[in-house]
Write a protein that binds this DNA or RNA. Structure first.
Lengths: 351, 351
DNA sequence: GTGAAAGCGCTAACAA
DNA sequence: TTGTTAGCGCTTTCAC
């Protein structure tokens, strides 16, 4: 398999024609230049026989197009992002493009390096799940050399197209669900505070509270990253506040994992002692003890839509509009939310 | 940022020297050619100021090296493979290489296409998690143009280096654990039968049974892929056999998920009615109802070792030895295994 | 110490 | 209908 692929030159020499003729016959330009059927046939046959395919490096150098897209992900080992990577990769195959993958490890510094490396390699487009804190380095992408799509996190002030979940709506639905069950003291385990996802989810939470005329208490918000450990620490802290929250809302799947641990360690039971809702569904959510009510994000749709948007721009060579795709979320109600009983309200007042 | 990177020619023109001199000054060959400090300094300064860096396409075309490695994964959305992708990507960054990612979707056909596409792009090395059924298309890789490392699954008859978990040992440990708890009728929910992982895990299972003088019953093995649905169907089937197995051993994490579903649907409780062990740990395993005992694979080590082996070969331009790395597994004992009581043995004889 | 020139494999403008 | 030639940006051989 493909030890040293033949070249146009080799085929041309073999057939006694020029490389131009070979190139044109093989790239579908035969008709335009009225190359005889006979010649074209001979060229195509030989090319097939030798399993020829043009050297992408030489092609890229000449054409300034590489049939390659870049994909930058903060953490491929996070199932949510892995799913996106999966979808993008598959879409790329359909469009006969390759994917250059970079993992920014949730660090803006590495994100900058990755963008630079990929652009240097002349990708034809870029799908970027930004770390989400700084955005100065993204400014140049707006009128940059290639189309860019932001996924999951976005920057309101940046004219780059984005594909995100309906974080506001999802968080509002989750909070409303808790409110409807009578919960009033709802603790939030947040992620990276500066990110759009975190901000939007907080907004949804506050908007639901406001809709019911419930005051938001800033002491009920804790946490600083989307990682499990932050969820654990934040939950521990909130579980110690008095009166204790009757429900917790975890703004990410790993955060929820940490919350489960903290709740178990505190000897509390879900949903008897405390209710829990988590942003971001997970295949295991159904089998947890108890099954956890979640706001399901459609990661597949995020990936597919992002890829679709990118490739349509790549094809059209079109500019970066600031079009914003918002993908709906779905509240999956399981057993981790229980109505607040009078008893439990009183119980929490004085332990 | 990098709209149109300057070229050697531009720098040369600016400084009134030849491109050769610029190239040599910038690629550390200045000393060898005794280029004056003055010239070198000027070149380097200007290059830095213009943020020059050589065009990788041109470089690749000339050098036949691209500072790129290929990574082929059967399913990036599987957390186990996602973890491997994560580690490989990070290692690649350390080695100043880029990663071309392909998802073979567990299909040999797409795996073949991916290999072809990546080699065509002249990757300097290839990390391949093979689908694992066919191996004819891998034969040519043995003496192929670039080093290749197989990860997770391997082919005993193929002289390609591989990095795999100790599947035999892990399965043996899991089975012994069940045997020690008194289980004798242990059902196996297997994955893709033809793969090395599946074969090795079955071997471990059988070897543990044989060690205790327990007959293996072929009717206790069911399942045909590593996906959740296969686990579900296989578990359903085994739960209907009489006498019913007192324990199930799921040979993959998704399979275990399906098993949980089937067990719950059958109205059985873990571990009271049936014990469960799963191959492949998962962050959620701790929080399941009950926590599931697993054979933890060190996906990080697999990824890191594979990357290390690849880059050392890339650097040394060395051949594909058939070196085999086997990474130990760890039995993580949780609550899903219970000793078989006399009562439960009798119970199962006659319901 | 430095440079001219060839060539990696391809496409496209220009000729014929 | 086909070919000649230039050039994408780089490295390297050979020459001075």
């Amino acid at each position: 398999m493909r030890n040293a692929s033949p070249t146009l030159k080799a085929i041309a020499a073999h057939l006694g024609v020029s490389v131009t003729t070979v190139s044109r016959s093989l790239s579908g330009q035969g008709a335009r230049y009225r190359i005889s059927e006979k010649t074209q046939g001979a060229v195509r046959r030989l090319a097939r026989r030798l399993d020829f395919s043009p050297n992408p490096l030489a092609r890229g150098l000449r054409l300034k197009k590489t049939a390659t897209v870049g994909l930058i992900i903060p953490d491929v080992s996070n199932p949510f992002f892995a799913r996106i990577a999966h979808c993008v990769t598959i879409a790329a195959r359909d469009h006969h493009h390759s994917v250059l993958l970079a993992d920014s490890q949730e660090q803006t510094r590495l994100e900058i390096d990755s963008i630079d490396a990929l652009l240097r390699r002349q990708v034809d487009g870029l799908i970027l799940c930004p770390v989400g804190i700084a955005d100065a380095h993204l400014r140049s992408l707006v009128r940059g050399p290639v189309p860019v799509i932001l996924v999951d996190r976005h920057f309101p002030r940046l004219a780059l197209p984005s594909v995100t979940s309906d974080n506001v709506g999802g968080a509002r639905a989750a909070t409303s669900h808790l409110l409807a069950a009578g919960h009033r003291r709802i603790g939030v385990l947040q992620g990276l505070p500066e990110t759009s996802t975190n901000r939007d989810r907080l907004t949804g939470y506050r908007s639901a509270l406001a809709g019911r005329g419930v005051r938001t208490d800033p002491r009920l918000v804790a946490g600083d990253t989307f990682l499990e450990d932050s969820g654990y620490r934040a939950a521990r802290r909130l579980l110690r506040t008095r009166p204790r929250p009757t429900a917790l809302f975890a703004l990410g799947n790993l955060i929820a994992l940490g919350a489960l641990r903290a709740i178990a360690e505190a000897g509390l039971r879900i949903p008897g002692d405390i209710s829990l809702v988590a942003f971001d569904d997970h295949p295991y959510a159904d089998h947890l003890a108890p099954p956890v009510t979640t706001v399901a994000q459609d990661a597949d749709a995020l990936g597919r839509i992002a890829a679709g948007a990118l490739f349509s721009r790549v094809r059209a060579q079109s500019l970066n509009s600031s079009q914003r795709h918002v993908v709906p979320t779905r509240l999956v109600s399981r057993g981790s939310v229980q109505p607040v009983s009078r008893a439990s309200i009183q119980q929490q007042e004085k332990p």
